[in-house]
Design a protein around this nucleic acid. Structure first.
Lengths: 253, 253
DNA sequence: CGGGTCATTGAACCATATCAAGTCCTGTGG
DNA sequence: CCACAGGACTTGATATGGTTCAATGACCCG
């Protein structure tokens, strides 16, 4: 079992910590503070669950049935307007928490963006354990504060960045969350590669753009040499120079 | 003292509960669960503080010196890009909490949008009290979860709504937070009025628009009769029919 | 009265949306 | 192995909502 996280499903190292444990669970750093006894309590109620790409994990406006920890895969949190316009308001990766443990109804729908492995805790029992373990509650609070910071950073992107900056920022974020980029414990690689976990349409819904604009920006980055893509694969991105990408995401002046 | 909130500064009823106590402190409903003893602990360390419009309360990237409760006025949370583009990522009203109590550095700058009265708690002492009182920690967690929901709703607005819908949604939000609109305990008024707490430039920074576009949308709403404004006052808005405004904010189809 | 801030209004421009083909990849069934 | 269908993606042409630049107006305060 992976000691520091709440992920109680046995997984291969390849899934959770291919490059750097610290990076994958960075949002749960404090998690390592949980005692063996506390982890055992959680382990007792944990139930593994697999979802296929596109499946709805938690529907909007429903009272959630469980609280979960993501073992592998990517989950998108989406909200829709009456006329069908859609916005992705958050992405959840391996080691992230999923769901509202306070029993309130889900403010947005959670959908599997890729195939997903979950570790689910029945809500009633989870809440009881939280009440008995202030350390766990503190952990949830810290994680919620981090989510809030991320949400606000994304508001700046949605409100004030142009298509080029949005696209570059998205690449940066995906690289940071799914490869070892930005990890203080790893070599500061200037080149790196990663796999996009979303379709062009999903990327557009996350960035407040249309899928055509996303496609054009990617074409533009390829033409400039900021990225290249593996042949016959629209998902595999190679970034030869990380600093150039950062420049595109946050231009000076 | 107002029993249910953490606002320990003596204020007139006119400030905190002119129309409906439930509305003004709705985000702190659970606050009323705090015992007299707990409130007394907080009261002992509370320090009142006044800020003028435009003053920076908590600078971005600083370790905050205090945690606060807003007694009156409106505070804007802002983030800036390198080239000066600005985005307001949150507005805080009377009874809202202000600052990060966990000692992390402020992710954004907090600035007085109007004259503001605060009730400040020195951070070290506040954290000690929080650790001793799980009920208070639970309260902070609930409040953070609500902030996160609000932030995500705003992401939908920034990413997917057009200027007209943004403007109407903004009016709705201000009405809800500063008048009795939407309060279940009050008469469901169809007409209502409120005062805008922000300049046109601030509204633009909150909606991801330019101030010219904001001005034009307001002119448009006036022409359509969706709103009218008091003479010689760019801040005082009158909404003759609430439902028409709602329609503009969330059009069907 | 004059200077400053805040707001309105107009005209031109442009970044992105929209509409419309067309291509590439994948899986399926003959 | 090929034909075909469907989904994901790309590319082009055109339209437009919102920005940008610029001028003007209204109010406040010393």
């Amino acid at each position: 079992m992976y000691g520091g996280s709440l992920s109680l499903v046995r997984t291969s190292d390849a899934t959770l910590s291919r490059h750097c444990r610290e990076c994958v669970v960075r949002h749960l750093g404090a998690c390592q503070a949980l005692s063996d006894k506390e982890l055992a309590r959680l382990e007792a109620i944990a139930r593994p669950r697999r979802m296929k790409t596109g499946q709805v994990i938690l529907p909007q406006a429903d009272k959630p049935a469980f609280f979960a920890n993501i073992i592998s895969g990517v989950v998108k949190l989406t909200q829709v307007l009456h006329d069908g316009r859609q916005q992705i308001v958050g992405l959840k990766f391996a080691s992230d928490f999923l769901g509202r443990f306070d029993g309130a109804q889900n403010p947005c729908s959670a959908e599997a963006a890729t195939d997903v492995e979950l570790c689910c805790f029945p809500l009633g029992e989870f809440r009881r354990i939280v009440q008995e373990h202030p350390k766990l509650e503190r952990l949830l609070l810290e994680s919620t504060l981090n989510e809030l910071d991320d949400a606000r950073d994304w508001m700046v992107l949605l409100g004030r960045k142009n298509a080029r900056e949005k696209m570059a920022s998205f690449f940066e974020m995906i690289a940071r969350r799914t490869s070892n980029a930005g990890c203080v414990h790893c070599e500061p690689a200037t080149a790196l590669e990663f796999v996009l976990p979303l379709t062009r349409a999903d990327i557009a819904d996350y960035l407040g753009l249309t899928l055509e604009t996303v496609s054009r920006q990617i074409a533009c980055f390829k033409a400039e040499g900021i990225i290249s893509m593996a042949p016959n694969n629209h998902r595999h991105v190679i970034v030869p120079d990380w600093h150039v990408l950062e420049q595109a995401a946050n231009p000076v002046q």
